[in-house]
Design a protein around this nucleic acid. Structure first.
Length: 571
DNA sequence: GCCGTTTTCGGCCCGACTGTTTTCAGTCG
């Protein structure tokens, strides 16, 4: 068997570590920024970057030049990045962990190491407790307290991802707060901001921007809401509170004339803003949250809304979901931002369950009438295959027919979710699959046993219409199968097999970069909920957010079509 | 180390906050 190529995440981690270590060693900061930028780009690339590097095409990625490409090749050919190996020999491992503590950056970490001789988190704790940390100029008692507090909370050892929550958990709260603040008499405009507005799959702090006729009154309403468990900070124009679910909410009230500038700034992403500002700077403009300054004349222009701001800077307005510095600025400059799919474009559900699956909690009729109430015209009922053996499939069809008779012209489609076994076979015979109107094939077990080959096998089956939750990941819990996304997308496109965006809050699978690749290849991507009960049908909104992050338009999303149109698309 | 609708060399986002300081470096988002 050929040597496995390093995953993009591993390459990116090594570059980030190289950046950390280099920074502690006091090396040129622009090189450090370059390492980090390349790491982010590589982490967000859907296909294997190692393969690109080997064929000399990694330099096509923005932020990756000849030198970094060579470093990737080193990982493949020598099993290590030499620059990293060399620097790690001079910097103790524990010193890198100092960087994760609040208030400690590379300069401070280096001084704790070289001036105090402390090289471990335990040593750092001891130094802080015995008051030796304040021996360093610039550090005092408060610094010691902050370090101790963070260490006691387990910081340093914890991966940053563990502090994040699912978008699906935060979004309902965010929408409720926007609604509540908007209804306040002192509110003029209220918007969500930050990563939740970009619909990132996980979020940490939740940001709101508002304009108001009476800022302190709006701040007061925010801080005194009944869902607030703790007020962390409260001023006249800014407040931070923590809700009972443990989420942190941050409200800023700003003057109406610069609402667009502030909202743009706090929506991010950081990388998008940096790239936007660099681009502007080359044209003699300086951008901040307060406005756009023409450097030569010192003239400042502010904007009440974001669209006007982007137009002033020479771009098409860029939807928040695209602001990740992944090509959106060049596209917006050339007028190539697509019209992204919207929730209201969906016309049906393509993956859901009922009480016919033992983990389902709602009846067929409950699911169907809810879908109908949402304005859908069809719902593919795709109960798990193993609950439909021994005549149960026919019995289920009888119930479907009865429901259809009652809900006409709404249609419940006879579908199934078949399991792709560990050996790659499907757990339902082809003869049975041939009788169904919609077949989803999914991996549910043995994610590490040749997942790519098993999925490709399912794609080749003439009865399989769609692959369910491609990688099987559970966000913040398990990483999902390491699939060869390019190969899968290619065969899916050639065979006319759909690849779903599964909207379950902890799945969101295809993930954004994979869905973007699928869309570019011409694969039709349904946005499904995989709902096992009525309320989960409303998770479609999360899938739509993901599809928008993947640059997908209405035309690229399968279930923006009628069932008659989809029937024609089937193999 | 990367990059170019002024550049293949000489640039590289912007401002707030913190803790420690009498003017600022480091950190953070």
């Amino acid at each position: 068997m050929a040597k496995a190529l390093p995953r993009n995440a591993e390459i990116a981690d090594q570059l980030d570590l190289l950046a950390d270590v280099s920074e502690i060693l006091g090396e040129g900061s622009f090189r450090v920024v370059a390492y980090r930028r390349a790491a982010t780009r590589i982490r967000e690339t859907p296909g294997p970057v190692a393969e690109l590097a080997l064929s000399g095409r990694a330099t096509d990625l923005p932020g990756v030049g000849k030198t970094i490409e060579q470093k990737v090749v080193e990982i493949v050919e020598d099993g290590e990045m030499h620059a990293l190996t060399k620097r790690r020999q001079s910097v103790p491992e524990g010193v890198v962990e100092f960087l994760r503590l609040p208030g400690i950056g590379p300069k401070t970490a280096a001084r704790i190491w070289t001036e105090l001789g402390v090289t471990t988190l335990e040593g750092l704790q001891a130094a802080a407790e015995s008051g030796r940390l304040r021996d360093l100029s610039g550090l005092g008692q408060k610094s010691e307290e902050k370090v101790l507090k963070a260490l006691e909370a387990g910081a340093g050892r914890k991966a940053p991802a563990e502090n994040r929550g699912l978008l699906g958990m935060a979004l309902p709260a965010v929408k409720a707060i926007v609604e509540e603040l908007s209804a306040h008499p002192a509110a003029i405009a209220v918007s969500e901001a930050g990563s939740v507005r970009r619909r990132r799959e996980t979020v940490r702090d939740l940001d709101f921007i508002a304009t108001s006729s009476d800022a302190p009154a709006l701040i007061a309403a925010f801080c005194e809401s009944e869902w607030v468990a703790e007020v962390v900070a409260r001023g006249d124009t800014k407040a931070i509170v923590v809700g009972y679910q443990g989420l942190r909410f941050d409200l800023r009230v700003v003057p109406p004339e610069c609402f667009g500038n502030v909202l743009q700034h706090f929506t991010g992403s950081k990388d998008h803003n940096v790239a936007l500002r660099e681009d502007a700077q080359r044209r003699g403009l300086s951008i901040s949250e307060y406005g756009v300054t023409t450097v030569e004349t010192d003239e400042v222009v502010t904007h009440e809304d974001e669209e006007a701001l982007y137009r002033y800077l020479g771009y098409q307005p860029i939807p928040p979901e695209l602001r990740e510095n992944a090509g959106e600025l060049a596209a917006a400059r050339d007028g190539r931002i697509p019209a992204l799919v919207e929730l209201s474009d969906l016309r049906g559900e393509t993956h859901c369950h009922s009480t016919w699956s033992s983990d389902g909690r709602s009846s067929i009729e409950e699911m169907a009438s809810t879908a109908k109430g949402k304005g859908y015209s069809y719902l593919c009922l795709t109960d798990h295959s193993h609950y439909l053996r021994g005549g149960r499939l026919e019995a289920q069809w009888k119930e479907i027919d009865e429901v259809n008779a009652r809900l006409k012209p709404f249609r419940v489609v006879r579908g199934i979710e078949v399991n792709i076994r560990a050996d790659g076979s499907l757990d339902v015979d082809d003869a049975v699959l041939a009788e169904l109107d919609w077949v989803i094939a999914s991996i549910h077990t043995a994610f590490d046993r040749s997942p790519t080959e098993r999925i490709l096998g399912a794609i080749e089956n003439p009865h399989v219409d769609c692959i369910g939750h491609l990688t099987g990941r559970r966000i913040l819990k398990r990483p999902g199968a390491d699939v060869d996304i390019e190969k899968i997308v290619e065969r899916a496109a050639e065979t006319g097999t759909a690849l779903e965006i599964n909207s379950q809050p902890d799945r969101l699978d295809l993930r954004d970069t994979h869905a973007r690749l699928a869309g570019e290849a011409g694969v039709l991507v349904p946005i499904s909920t995989d709902a096992h009960e009525v309320p989960a049908l409303f998770h479609a909104e999360l899938g739509v957010g993901l599809a928008r992050r993947a640059w997908l338009s209405k035309e690229q999303v399968l279930n923006t079509r009628s069932w008659a149109q989809i029937s024609k698309f089937r193999k």
